[in-house]
C-alpha cells in the first residue's frame, strides 16, 4: 500500500490480467463496430486503422452514422473532439499518480486511456496501487480486444447477433457501477455524487452527445473540492476519523 510510484512490467501484466472481463465486453462491441464499418463502406484496412489509431468506441460509432459520401470531414473531426472531451477531465485525474513518472512512460500510456480501463485503474489507485504500468496494461487489453474484434466484425459481416440480446450492452454500466461501490468512502461522498448525478441527468436530456459525462464529472468533483476546502478551513476534528486510515497514509506518500 505504501509503495512509491513506479512503472514496471509486473504492473503492466497485472493491469492486463485484471481487465480480462472488461476486454470480453469490449470485444463484443468491437465486433459490432466492424460490422457497421463494413456496412458504411470502409475497407478492412480502413476500419483497422480507425480502431487502432482513434481507439475510442463512442466516437467511432457516431462516425459510422455520419459516414456518407462525400465525407463530411470537418463534422467528423469536430464531433470526435466533442465526444472525447471527457478524456481531458480523466487525464487530469491521473496527474497525482503519474506526475513522478517519465514522459516516455506517461504520454504513450495516455494513448491507451479509455473510460473502462481508466475507471478500473483509478479504483486500483484509490485502493493503494502505485504502479503506473497498471493503466498501460489494462489499456493494452482493451486495445487488443477492440482491434481484433474490429477485424473479426469486418470479416464476418452481418452474421453477428446484437450484443443487447445477451445483455452485453449493460456490461459497461455494470462495471462502472461496481467500481463506484469500491470507491465509496462514506457520507462525505453523498453531496458530490448527488451533484454529479443531477447535472449528468439534466444535461443528458438537454445536450446531445457525451457532454453530460464531462459536465457531471466537473460539477461533482467541484462540489467535492469545495466541501473538502470548507472542512480544512474549519479544521474539523472529525476529518481524520472520517477518512479510512489507508487514505491518510496514501496522502503522506504523495507528498514525499
Amino acid at each position: 500500500m505504501d509503495d512509491p510510484v513506479q512503472f514496471t512490467f509486473d504492473g503492466v501484466a497485472n493491469g492486463f490480467r485484471r481487465s480480462l472481463p472488461i476486454g470480453l465486453s469490449v470485444f463484443a462491441y468491437g465486433l459490432v463496430f466492424g460490422v457497421l464499418a463494413r456496412q458504411a463502406g470502409l475497407s478492412l484496412l480502413e476500419s483497422v486503422l480507425m480502431s487502432g489509431w482513434v481507439f475510442a468506441g463512442a466516437s467511432q460509432f457516431v462516425a459510422m452514422d455520419l459516414w456518407v459520401s462525400p465525407l463530411p470531414v470537418p463534422t467528423l473531426i469536430l464531433t470526435t473532439l466533442v465526444l472525447n472531451l471527457r478524456h481531458v477531465l480523466m487525464g487530469a485525474a491521473v496527474y497525482p499518480w503519474f506526475a513522478p513518472l517519465r514522459r516516455r512512460q506517461i504520454y504513450p500510456t495516455l494513448f491507451f486511456m479509455t473510460d473502462e480501463n481508466w475507471a478500473l485503474s483509478m479504483r486500483q489507485y484509490a485502493a493503494g496501487e502505485r504502479d503506473g504500468g497498471f493503466l498501460l496494461g489494462s489499456g493494452l487489453m482493451i486495445y487488443l480486444a477492440w482491434l481484433s474484434a474490429a477485424m473479426g466484425g469486418q470479416m464476418l459481416g452481418a452474421s453477428i447477433p446484437d450484443p443487447a440480446r445477451w445483455g452485453l450492452d449493460f456490461a459497461f454500466t455494470a462495471v462502472f457501477a461496481a467500481l463506484l461501490v469500491g470507491m465509496w468512502k462514506g457520507k462525505q461522498d453523498v453531496l458530490p455524487w448527488a451533484a454529479a448525478a443531477a447535472t449528468a441527468l439534466l444535461t443528458s436530456y438537454w445536450l446531445p452527445g457525451k457532454w453530460y459525462i464531462l459536465l457531471g464529472g466537473l460539477a461533482g468533483s467541484l462540489v467535492g473540492a469545495f466541501i473538502d476546502g470548507k472542512r480544512s478551513r474549519v479544521g474539523e476534528p472529525g476529518l481524520q476519523a472520517a477518512n479510512p486510515p489507508n487514505l491518510d497514509g496514501k496522502r503522506e506518500r504523495n507528498e514525499l
Binding site: A119, M122, R123, L180, G216, G217, G220, S221, V223, G224
Partner: peptide, 8 residues
C-alpha cells in the same frame, strides 16, 4: 473527486 463523479 473526479473518478467518482465521472462514474456516477
Amino acid at each position: 473527486h473526479i473518478p467518482g463523479a465521472v462514474l456516477i
